[in-house]
Write a protein that binds this DNA or RNA. Structure first.
Length: 216
DNA sequence: TGCCAGGCCGGGT
DNA sequence: ACCCGGCATGGC
């Protein structure tokens, strides 16, 4: 929590998804789920363009997306990069919601956390970080999101081990933090912001990194 | 200019 | 059980 407070004090609330209006609507939740796939290894500014394209094209619904060809979908999401791969992954997700959940994303997201996570992970193209992002930000349920920055930063601070896998790191945070969705939401967002201060060599890049004083 | 971004999958050892 | 290449655009 001390590290969270240091990041939060420097950056302020990051205001990621569910803190914005409209995110609780089915369309808002869908945007979050699509964004979670589109942002895989991709900067958020590129994802925003792709999401905006879908909205402008009036395709931001399961049924509309389900009716789209691979080529048309790929073209709309082109700015997000890896557009062929991502069009396939989005289609896998959309098809699952359509065929198993009757096109009702709320019904899917209403599952209890562990069942929801299994269901999401069984979609080809949805890995652990993507699934946890959907659970935390779209479903509003407590599932801590781990990403490359999380490992890089906390390994550097020797709070987790070099070899720790995703599930181990996730469990570390979930066991050390109060089980609070808004906290976990902003915590991950703060980590992403802070991660920009860390290069891959073992030393912070910027002099005013909020976690600087925690380094040995 | 080159490097990197909120990963994930599939094939090879 | 690893390890690695592929995927692609946009910003600094």
């Amino acid at each position: 929590m001390a590290m969270y407070q240091a990041m939060r004090a420097k950056f302020g609330p990051r205001g990621w998804w569910p803190s914005t209006a409209g995110c609780r609507s089915p369309q808002g939740r869908l945007e979050i789920c699509l964004g979670a796939i589109l942002t895989q290894n991709t900067s958020w500014s590129n994802v925003e363009k792709a999401v905006a394209n879908l909205i402008t094209a009036r395709r931001m619904s399961i049924s509309k997306l389900h009716a789209l060809s691979h080529e048309a979908l790929a073209e709309l999401i082109r700015p997000a990069g890896y557009f062929n791969v991502k069009a396939r992954r989005l289609a896998n997700f959309i098809t699952r919601v359509q065929e198993r959940w009757g096109g009702d994303i709320e019904a899917l997201l209403a599952l209890p956390i562990s069942a929801l996570r299994e269901e999401l992970l069984s979609v080809n193209g949805v890995g652990r970080e993507t699934a946890d992002s959907m659970i935390l930000y779209a479903a509003g349920k407590p599932s801590f999101v781990v990403d490359a920055y999380t490992a890089r930063i906390f390994v550097r601070h020797k709070l987790i081990g070099e070899e720790d896998d995703y599930e181990t790191i996730k469990a570390f945070f979930e066991s050390h933090l109060p089980r609070d969705v808004p906290l976990w939401n902003d915590y991950h967002a703060q980590i992403v912001e802070t991660g920009k201060c860390y290069c891959k060599k073992p030393r912070p890049r910027c002099d005013d990194c909020p976690l600087r004083r925690f380094l040995k």
